[in-house]
């Protein structure tokens, strides 16, 4: 198996505070990975470092390429559409994406908005949090990228939308692409995760296949995750 992501000795400081220190992380292609950790642990920062939105020291190679500007064409990130005015219609946002991302697949996008029940004539400013997140997911998954980074796609979302988003992830993730989903609430996505990466204490605290956790410890992903905070499970 080849690696879609190889991070080496990544350190990130912000406002004189160390957020991540000497992080090494390698992700294989074709996986769904849960990026877990408390709020403020550095999950979003890690994703932003991969896209180049945040600047740290160390090397990050995406598909073997460590030039930051090149990452952008391989990585599809759930950016929150801050570059658009609130009165921008969703179909205009889609046109923007279609124009600037050569890998944006209009057909996929149509399927996604149908599946996620999105009305593209709505304006960004008029969307509920859940609807906005669905729009972001549709735009992110409509690209044919090698690495998808979904930053807390389920926060503040009702359970029906959550189920739809999870289904759309399973349906539309290209087979050889890897998807990283960050969340601080695990149970709902646990069944779809190949591996979990836990960010804690300024680094990658654990990186394990999820079925290995179940086999090795006989506990669920959520229990395992919580135990790391309570010091219940001995970690090697």
């Amino acid at each position: 198996m080849t690696n879609v992501l190889a991070i080496n000795q990544l350190t990130y400081k912000h406002n004189l505070k160390t957020i991540l220190k000497d992080v090494d992380l390698t992700l294989e292609t074709g996986k769904i990975i849960g990026l877990l950790g408390e709020n403020g642990a550095g999950k979003t920062t890690l994703m932003r470092l991969i896209t180049g939105s945040a600047k740290g020291s160390g090397t990050i190679a995406v598909c073997g390429d460590s030039v930051a500007a090149h990452h952008k064409s391989h990585v599809s990130f759930t950016e929150q559409l801050r570059g658009f005015k609130p009165n921008t219609r969703i179909d205009r946002v889609a046109n923007f994406y279609r124009t600037v991302y050569p890998d944006f697949d209009g057909q996929r996008f149509e399927e996604l908005i149908t599946f996620l029940q999105i009305d593209t004539s709505l304006k960004l400013g008029a969307l509920s949090k859940g609807m906005k997140e669905k729009v972001v997911i549709a735009l992110t998954l409509a690209r044919q990228a090698q690495l998808y980074l979904l930053d807390e796609p389920f926060s503040g979302i009702d359970s029906m939308s959550r189920k739809r988003i999870i289904s759309s992830i399973i349906k539309w993730k290209p087979e050889d692409a890897t998807m990283v989903i960050s969340d601080h609430y695990v149970s709902e996505i646990a069944p779809i995760l190949d591996e979990v990466v836990i960010v804690k204490d300024q680094g990658i605290y654990a990186h394990k296949p999820s079925d290995a956790i179940r086999e090795e410890f006989g506990i669920g992903i959520e229990a395992y995750y919580e135990s790391l905070y309570e010091g219940g499970v001995k970690h090697d």
């Binding site: 074709g30 996986k31 769904i32 189920k163 999870i166 289904s167 399973i170 349906k171 993730k173 087979e175 069944p191 779809i192 995760l193 190949d194 079925d211």
Partner: peptide, 17 residues
Amino acid sequence: VRQLAVDLTVNVNTVQR
């Protein structure tokens, strides 16, 4: 495989395994 994964809400790789 993908349909099964969608129906069961699990990962394609896990179904494959």
